[in-house]
Design a protein around this nucleic acid. Structure first.
Lengths: 297, 297
DNA sequence: CTTGGCGATAAAATTAATTAATTCTTCATA
DNA sequence: TATGAAGAATTAATTAATTTTATCGCCAAG
């Protein structure tokens, strides 16, 4: 059906300008600059070979040709919007994603509202896993956000974030009696440990700090508890980067030094349900990658 | 009216694919590659968070969601196309353009069909001028395509093509008894002259040919007659580039050498009617510039 | 087994859209 | 009249979106 459609984006711009009779206001509605809309209108007029607006003292007026276009275009766009919204509102998709609780609480959850706003038809169900994803119970999960080194045989994974570690402590500790200005001051403080492979030893080595007994201080079996202890001012913990994001954001923890060390570990997306309906998964993974991009810049 | 419209180009691609139930056929209709349409569909599905087609062994099938979208989208695009065509077919614009007859015949006319095809609502009326455009009678011309050096005081002109000169002769002459292989062979031939400032002397100087009496041979008062004489095999003329374009195209004349000399003269667009309805003028001048671009590449 | 048709994909290239920074116009007001 | 404010137009540059090219994989028909 060889229709001879004009450029649809120009038409959209035209329709908005015609409703407002103002390029500036149309630009606001379309969330672009006034210049962008002006360009679109000019291009459309050139392509049609007809002026659509009469430029006037105060504002614009539609020409006869412009007049004739407004109503059909408005109707057409309403139609498109209605059909789209029907699907976006009625067809709620459920996307089941598994991940570590620490990742959910420390990084993902606070961002998820943005996803809901952008994809009102996709409902994310978070399944919290303890350590490694249990393949045997994988039947009802679409996507796994997995922590590790990416070396899982026969698993098609895609990295989306790298882990980094750096010291964190409560802001009160910084203002306390014991100074924490130089790296050497660390020796005066309690070091809090978690039970991960890369820890204080590696960070101190990387930072070039010598003569500190990196093994002293209490250890916790969950990173979460270590961070809590740090937030309570009990000492200095090694924060892990996506995980401490929220605590830093809220000011519960601060970064006394700006030296951070990649641990070689990271977060990976693993597609579990390889059957149909890839679109909801793509929608989520694209959004996730974009959030990471923003987070890291 | 903050509608939440999806990307309109994807929607157009979707509508075409849905009608054909084939990406390849839709791509043909849209005059793009199959890959382009595939990308658009994927992007739309991702953005909607819903699969619109079920990929099948043979061809595609619409999903429930896809089904729901087709009819409204088809209607919407029909509406847009109808409104557009109404203007394009009913509102015929007349654009009056003046130019030298030699330019019209030698370059513009054969291309004009392309303009009519692209802008069915704009009717070009060509007014042939003899030498210089007569400003006193300018009232009923929108645009002047003027030949010269561009130095017209108080005239807002924009160059769109440069003139170049080079020898041309009839193809029969090349096959004749007198050879025309090297520049020196020119001395064996009749040189045909027109009455322009830059001519055989300048071209021969530029080509580094010495010892040829550049003034011998008959002269004609109109370039057109000079070229006609050359086409009849009466000798070798200096062709001027936009003007001999058609004769070269049709094979009436050929270029024995590949040395061409810019004369410093050229063709300029001069806006005469500065009042309203710039769009038809822009449509024509944009098209003209594009034709020149294609011509010169 | 091959072959051919069709869709998906990745990377690169090309186009189109957008912005930032001005400029131009047209009043309204000092 | 100046002067300034508000909105549209413009230009050049940048950024984003689209398209292509080339290739792969799948499946069905020979």
């Amino acid at each position: 059906m060889g229709r001879n459609l004009p450029n649809l984006n120009s038409i959209r711009a035209f329709e908005a300008v015609a409703r407002h009779l103002s390029i500036t206001r149309a630009a606001k509605e379309l969330n672009v600059t006034q210049a962008a809309v002006s360009h679109q209108i000019k291009a459309l007029e050139t392509r049609m070979g007809v002026m659509l607006f009469r430029r006037h003292n105060k504002g614009l007026l539609l020409t006869k040709e412009g007049q004739a276009m407004v109503q059909p275009m408005t109707n057409a766009f309403d139609m498109i919007a209605d059909a789209t919204n029907l699907i976006l509102n009625n067809e709620v998709q459920i996307l089941k994603v598994s991940m570590l609780g620490s990742f959910a609480a420390g990084w993902l959850m606070p961002r998820l509202a943005g996803f809901y706003a952008e994809y009102p038809n996709i409902d994310i169900r978070i399944l919290v896993t303890s350590k490694e994803f249990d393949f045997l119970k994988a039947g009802d999960v679409d996507l796994d956000l997995r922590y590790g080194d990416g070396k899982w045989p026969h698993v098609d994974s895609q990295k989306f974030m790298s882990e980094e570690i750096f010291p964190v402590c409560s802001p009160a500790l910084l203002k306390g009696d014991i100074p924490l200005n130089s790296l050497d001051d660390l020796s005066q403080h309690v070091l809090l440990h978690d039970h991960k492979d890369i820890g204080w030893k590696e960070w101190l080595d990387d930072a070039g700090v010598k003569g500190i007994d990196y093994s002293r201080g209490p250890g916790f079996f969950q990173s979460h508890l270590t961070l809590q202890a740090a937030a309570l001012g009990h000492g200095i913990a090694l924060g892990r980067m996506p995980l401490v994001s929220e605590s830093l954001q809220r000011g519960e923890l601060v970064k006394p030094f700006d030296i951070s060390l990649p641990t070689g570990m990271g977060y990976y997306m693993v597609n579990i349900d390889t059957t149909s309906d890839k679109s909801k998964i793509r929608a989520f993974t694209n959004w996730l990658k974009e959030e990471v991009r923003i987070f890291e810049e």
